[in-house]
Structure formats: C-alpha cells, structure tokens
C-alpha cells in the first residue's frame, strides 16, 4: 500500500485505548524534532506515549476539559502555528509536535471579599491588560475557540458581565499568554472576572437566601436529628415510600402533601 493511500480504518480518535482498529496504518510525526511512526488513529498524547514518552506533568483528565495538555504544532510546509489539546487532537502525517505543560504567567493574590465588584479592581490587579495591541494571537492560540481578544477588550471597557460570558469556556491552559505581545496572563484575568461576576454581578437566587436563613434559624434541626437517630430499616422505608414528583408533572405545578419543610 502506498504512503498516501487511505486505509479503511475509521478516522477517529481511539483516545486512551491502546488497541488499534483493524487496518490502522502508521504515519510519521516529529516529536521535538525526532521522527516517529505512530498509528494514525491516536491522539497526540497517546501517540507520544506510543513513541515512548511518559507524562509526569502536562496530562490530566484526558477528556479535554482540565487544560493540562496544551500542545503546539506545525504541519510540514505550512507557516501557521496550530494549537490543540494533546488528549483531543488526532495526529496527522508530518506533524511537528511539542507539549507546553506550563507557561509562566503573572498571577496576583487577592481577597474576593475585599476587592469589590468594580472593573477597576481587575485593572489595578492586572494593569498589563492595557498593553493589549489587538494582534489577536491569543484567540488564534485558544484550543477551546474562546474569543480571547473579545473578552480582554471587554475587560478594558469595564464590562465584567460580557468578559465573564465570553471567557466561560476557558480551561486555563495558558496558550493565550504564551502568544501575547502585551505579556499579560489573559486566562488568569478571565478567571478573576468570572469570580467577580459570580460574587458581585450575577443575579442572586432570592429563595436560596431565604432557605439559608431558615437553616440557620434551626427550622430543620429537629428533622435532621430524627433522621440521624433513625434505624436503618425505618430510614430505608421512609426513603422508598417518600412522596415523589411524577416524572411528567408540568413544571411548577406539583406540590407534596407534606409542606411543613417548604
């Protein structure tokens, strides 16, 4: 079979499974400059392990959400830099690979209760945000397709809600910071903004406040005491015979017969 001919094997990630689909062929990739032959169905992470590398850092959930395995790669003959998560990106022939397990970035200390909910609290902690030149390299580097420039712009404009919303999918991998001309830690700034948003801006649930007050006032103490001192049999019976909202009950209409704890 020629090098360029496609195999019949499904072109999908086999993830962490070492068992390869039948007919999977191998392709050449370059890991830190050295050539390796790896099965074409593997993710970058698995391909590196297949090639003999062992991850002691820079690998976490292996499910595309923890942000520990950002990877930077190039393709032969292409000037562009590509970014991805090593645990999610499937290898391609002639990829040039390197892992970025950690990227140093300024991370300030703050007490969320003390800094308040104003945008200038973020400006004071991270004045370097004003060094943004809108080159957009951050957005291009984001493996989660977050519009990083847009949320940094929102921070500069003082719009915390907008910045929190746009940066929501950030997984703190730090690739934005690795490419930043203004040398700022976008991902830490975004995280601070989301914390401020949650603490000061997001509408608070009124019923939750009321319930917390009730709990603090001791309304449920007696019930809790009864439950903790109950025999296992009695507790099981109580649980299996509990009143349940019918699965198809219209939302907001069903009420239990016993309303004393509502």
């Amino acid at each position: 079979m020629s090098e360029t001919e496609k195999t019949q094997a499904p072109k999908m990630a086999t993830g962490d499974r070492a068992i390869l689909p039948e007919g999977a062929r191998t392709i050449p990739v370059y890991i830190m400059g050295k050539r390796y032959e790896v099965p074409e169905t593997l993710t970058i992470m698995k391909a590196m392990e297949y090639s003999g590398f062992k991850f002691v850092r820079g690998a976490g959930c292996r499910g595309g959400i923890c942000g520990a395995c950002p990877t930077v790669y190039r393709k032969a003959g292409d000037y562009k830099i590509y970014f991805g998560l090593a645990c999610q990106t499937v290898v391609e022939p002639d990829m040039f690979l390197a892992q970025i397990p950690f990227y140093p970035a300024n991370r300030t200390a703050y007490d969320l209760e003390e800094i308040g909910g104003e945008a200038d609290a973020v400006h004071a902690l991270y004045p370097e945000v004003f060094r943004c030149v809108a080159c957009n390299n951050c957005t291009k580097a984001c493996p989660m397709d977050v519009d990083v420039l847009a949320y940094i712009s929102a921070v500069k404009q003082g719009d915390m809600a907008k910045a929190a919303e746009i940066s929501f999918d950030c997984i703190q991998c730090g690739m934005c910071a690795s490419r930043c001309m203004g040398e700022m830690p976008q991902f830490h700034i975004g995280q601070l903004v989301r914390r401020i948003y949650g603490r000061y801006i997001q509408p608070q649930a009124e019923h939750l406040k009321k319930r917390v007050e009730e709990i603090n006032s001791g309304k449920y103490d007696k019930m809790l005491e009864d439950l903790t001192s109950m025999s296992k049999e009695k507790l099981t019976k109580l649980y299996t015979e509990r009143e349940r909202e019918p699965d198809l009950a219209p939302s907001g209409e069903w009420m239990p017969e016993d309303t004393q704890y509502l």
Partner: peptide
C-alpha cells in the same frame, strides 16, 4: 505597570493607561 498603586490605576481613565504603557513600556 506592576509597581503602580491600585489607587493610581483606578483614578486613571483607561486611555491614560493604554497610551502610557504604549509609549513608556
């Protein structure tokens, strides 16, 4: 920029910071 006081930064209009950092950092 990292040696500026919080008060100084909070007082400034954003353009002062953007322009100042562009010219002086």
């Amino acid at each position: 920029p990292s040696k500026m006081t919080a008060e100084e930064i909070k007082n400034c209009p954003q353009i002062a910071l953007v322009a100042g950092f562009r010219k002086l950092t």
